[in-house]
Amino acid sequence: MAGSGHDVTMTPSLDTADPEEVLLLAADAARLVLESGGETYRAEETAAAFASALGGAEAECFATPTGLVLSFTGMDGRVRSIVRRISKRAMNLERIVRIDELVRRLGSGSADFAAAAESLDQIERLPPRHLALSLLGAAATTGFFTLLFGGAWNDALVSALVGILVSRIGPRLARKTLPDFFINLVAGAAATLLCLLALRLGFSTNSNATVIGVIMILVPGVAVTNAIRDIVAGDLVAGVARGADAFMAAAAISVGAGGAHQLWRLVTGGAA
C-alpha cells in the first residue's frame, strides 16, 4: 500500500524530533520569512507547516511585522509556545523562494527534521549578492524610472549616478545602528541635494523627473500596497503596522527632501 510506505518514511522524523526543537525551528522559519519581507500569512503558514510536518498535533501562529507568537501542541498533548521579535526587515526574494521550496519538501515528507534544520540554516546564512549587482540594480532602477517619468537621457544618467550613491547610504548608516527614520531622512536629503546640484551645474534639465526617479528606490511603495493587501485579507493588526511603517518612512524621506530644498534656496538665494 502507498499509505504504509508513507508511514515508514515519516516515522524517523517523529521519533527523533524533540517538540521543543521543532518549536524553535518553526519559529525561526517564520521569523526568517518576516525578516525577508514575506507576507504575514506566509510567515504564519510556514510556521504551521513546519510544526505539523515535523510532528505537532496542532500549531497556531500569529504574526505581525514586528514580532510573532507561535503556540504548538506536541503529540504528547503538551502545549508549548514561543515569542520572536523582529527588528530588521529587508526584501530578500531568494530566501522567500527557498523557504517555500523547503515547506513543499516538508509537506511531501521528503525532508525530515535534520534536513529541514540544515536547509534553514543555509538559507539564513545565504551570502548577499555581489556589490556590483546591487549597484547595477540601483542605477537601472533610478535611471529607467527617470525615463518613465518623462526625463531625458542626460536626466536618466544623472539619476543613475545619484541612485548608486544614495543606495549605499542606507547600508552604511545601518551598520552604525542608527534608527530607520534618521537613515531615510539623510537619504532623502542627499538625493535631493545631489539632483539640485546636477541641475545647477547643467548636467540635467528636468529636476522633477530626476528627483522622483532617485526617490523611487527609497520610498516604500510596495509596503503601502502590501499593507492594504494584509488588511483586505483580514490580517488587520499586521496591515495597520505595515502601513504605519511605510508612512513613517515616507515622512522621513519627505522631511529630508523638503529640508534640502529649503537649504538649497538659502544657499543659492532663491535660484532653482
Binding site: 526617490i215 523611487m216 516604500p220 510596495v222 500596497t225 522631511v255 527632501a257
Partner: peptide
C-alpha cells in the same frame, strides 16, 4: 512584488508628505 513596482505609489507617498512639509 517585483512586477507591481512601476505601479506602486511610492512617488505619491513622497509628494504627499513633501507638499505637507
Amino acid at each position: 512584488v517585483c512586477a507591481i513596482i512601476p505601479l506602486v505609489p511610492g512617488g505619491g507617498m513622497y509628494m504627499t508628505m513633501l507638499e505637507y512639509v
